[in-house]
Design a protein around this nucleic acid. Sequence first.
DNA 1: ATTGAAGATGACGCAGGCGTCATCTTTCGC
DNA 2: GCGAAAGATGACGCCTGCGTCATCTTCAAT
Lengths: 204, 204
Amino acid sequence: MTTAADPPLGRREQTKRANRATILDAAREVFAELGYGAASVRDIIRRTDLAAGTFYNYFPDKEAVFRALLDELALEVGGLTAQARASATTLDDFVEEGFRAFFVYLAEDPVRCELLRRNAGAVRSLFEGEAIDAVLTQLGADLQRGIDAGLIPPHDTELMATAMLGSAFEVGMRAAERDPVDVETATRLCADIFLGGFARMREG
Amino acid sequence: MTTAADPPLGRREQTKRANRATILDAAREVFAELGYGAASVRDIIRRTDLAAGTFYNYFPDKEAVFRALLDELALEVGGLTAQARASATTLDDFVEEGFRAFFVYLAEDPVRCELLRRNAGAVRSLFEGEAIDAVLTQLGADLQRGIDAGLIPPHDTELMATAMLGSAFEVGMRAAERDPVDVETATRLCADIFLGGFARMREG
DNA sequence: ATTGAAGATGACGCAGGCGTCATCTTTCGC
DNA sequence: GCGAAAGATGACGCCTGCGTCATCTTCAAT
C-alpha cells in the first residue's frame, strides 16, 4: 500500500529513498545519543557511508532532519493513541487503552525512546504548537468530548491532558529502562491514577 | 548566617564570590535559552564582562557549571517539597502541600523554569542517579512511609513517584506559561488526580 | 611605601563544523 | 550504446569554540 507508482520504481528513486532513510536512521541515533543541541550534521553523515555534501541534497540543515524525525513520530503516536481511545466504549477503556497504546509504542523501539527522552526540551522549544503539541490537543479534545457526554467531570482539559502526557512520558521512560519492559504495570498505574482522579473530581 | 568568617571579608574574596555568582547567573540564562548541548563557554562569558580565561579560574568546563546550577536547584526543590510533605498531618495535606511547594518554587523564577524545561533531557542523561534523581528517591521513600503507616495503598513507589513528578513537571511548565501563573489550579488538579488515584487503588 | 602572590586578561594555536561547488559517476530516455 | 541530466563526492574557505599561558593588575601583609 504505497501512495503512487508501485511497479515502476527506478533505480534512481530507489537509492534516493534509501539514502533519505539512511540519513534519518543515523540522525535518530545521533540525536538520541548526543542530544539535538550537541549533535552536528557531520556526526550524522559520519555514521553513514554517504559524503558530507550528500546530506544537503536531502535536508537543508540539522533542524530539518530533526523536524522530519519528530513529525513522523508525532504522527505515529498521535494516530495510535487517538485510535485506541476512539475504539473504547467505556471510560475505563478510554483511559486504559490510551495509555497502553502509548506504552506499547515506546517499548517497541529503544532508540525512539531515547530520542524522546534526550530531547524533550529541544522538542518543546523547537515545536511550539506543532507536531507533539498536536498529540496533546487531540487528547484535550477527546477529554472535552468525554465531558460533554457526561462521562468525565468538567475540568481544565488542557492542564489535564498535560498531566496525563507528563505522567505517561515519565512513567514510560522509567518502565522502558526496566528489564523486562513491563507495559502492563505502567498501564495499570496510570489508568488507576487518572480514573481515580476523575472519580474524585466527580464527587468532590 | 554565613558559614565562616563574617566580618573579615577581604576585597579579594568578595570579587571571587561575585564573579562566581556572575558566571552562574549568565550560565543559567544561556542554558535556558540555548539548551545545554548548544551552549558554549563563550556564550556564557560573553554575557559577562569577564574575560574568557577567567571562566576557567572558576569551573573546568561547561559541564561543571551546569552541575553546579542543577545541584543548587535540586537541593532547593528537594528541600522545599520534602519539608512541605514532612509537616503534613493528613494524606490530603501530604499530597497537596507537596505539589504546592513545587509549583510555588517554579512560579518564583521564570529563568529557573525555562532552564528546567529546556534541559530536561540533558539533566537526565547527565545526572543518572544524582541530583534530580535524589528528589525522586526522597519522594519514593515518603510514599513508602505512607504505605507502611497504612495511609496509602501499597504500590510500586518508584513508578508512582515518577508519575507524580512527571505530572508536576509538565503541569508546572504549562501553568507557568499562563498569565497570571495559577498555582492554585495546578495544585488542585494534581492533588485531585493523585488523591483520587490512591483512593481507587485502595478500593480496587 | 614595598613587594609578592592571587587572579584577571585576551591573544594564540589547534581542532572541528559549516555550506558550497567543481568534478566525477550513475541512470534513464532515446 | 549514447548523450544529457541527476545526483554523489570530498576538498575548500570560512568561522567559531576550545583551553592555555605569558603578561598585566590588584590586593594584602609587612
